[in-house]
Design a protein around this nucleic acid. Structure first.
Lengths: 132, 132
DNA sequence: CCGTAGCCTCACATGCGTGTGAGGGTGAGG
DNA sequence: CCTCACCCTCACACGCATGTGAGGCTACGG
């Protein structure tokens, strides 16, 4: 597919798709006329990239963790240098930290919302405010 | 405490502490000499801010969710305007999405690491090369 | 054949979190 | 008194993800 379709199907501007390519996150072949041509599976990959970017990972790191997500997981680990493995390990741990932080805060927000909607929507039920 | 101590205890540059204050994420009182003076509990708050920033939330949003995390959770929900509640709800859902995305990818990375270390090391004594 | 829609490259711009440094005050210790 | 370690404000700069637009090609439909 061409860039316009990929853009629409992923909700990502053409500009960004070219940027991701420039950063080595996705690849494209070129049609004879010079147009970029994308494989079907790039839709998922782009969505994944967007999710990770949104979660605070820089493209540099995303580029390193993306290869871990290809379906044929078996074949491609001869190229793993030890320092790359340690980077991955470190980054995995940082992801875990992020997850924990997000969960903590999301739960707090959620609890707050529950409390408010319990206390505000029905005529104000007082004992709800004493909860916790 | 003064900014230097807070900086050291949170691993955050003075510059950033002032920036967070400017963005309304933390507050400080001023000593007669003009020095900022911080409350003890700001240590935790700053760490929380850092975690959320690292997880991709902008200060604008962090500022809105921070009030949900004060210990005396009881007192301060009269100020909740309906549109602020919907913002919070939306943001909570976005956090959930982030969490799911991070978990998926972290698990994939983890599995990859497991596969590699299981497949690559057994030849030459594994725990030796794994020693860190 | 022309218009128009899609693609190309290139380059400048913006918002945000962060670094760095200049220029200057404060206050405790030798 | 002077030094040194802190603090202050202000302003410029950077990296990164993203927007915007200029200038120019391609190719299909009327």
């Amino acid at each position: 597919m061409r860039i316009g379709e990929l853009s629409e199907r992923t909700g990502t501007s053409r500009r960004l798709l070219r940027y991701y390519e420039e950063q080595g996150l996705i690849v494209s072949s070129r049609s004879p006329n010079g147009y970029r041509s994308y494989d079907e599976n790039l839709v998922d990959r782009v969505l994944q990239i967007r999710g990770l970017l949104d979660a605070g990972l820089p493209t540099r790191i995303i580029k390193q963790i993306l290869p871990c997500l290809n379906k044929p997981r078996v074949i491609h680990f001869p190229d793993a240098t030890p320092e790359m493995l340690s980077t991955l390990t470190l980054e995995r741990d940082r992801m875990t930290q992020r997850i924990e932080c997000l969960i903590r805060n999301r739960d707090a927000v959620s609890e707050y919302l529950d409390t408010v909607s319990a206390g505000a929507t029905p005529d104000r039920i007082p004992q709800a405010s004493a909860a916790r």
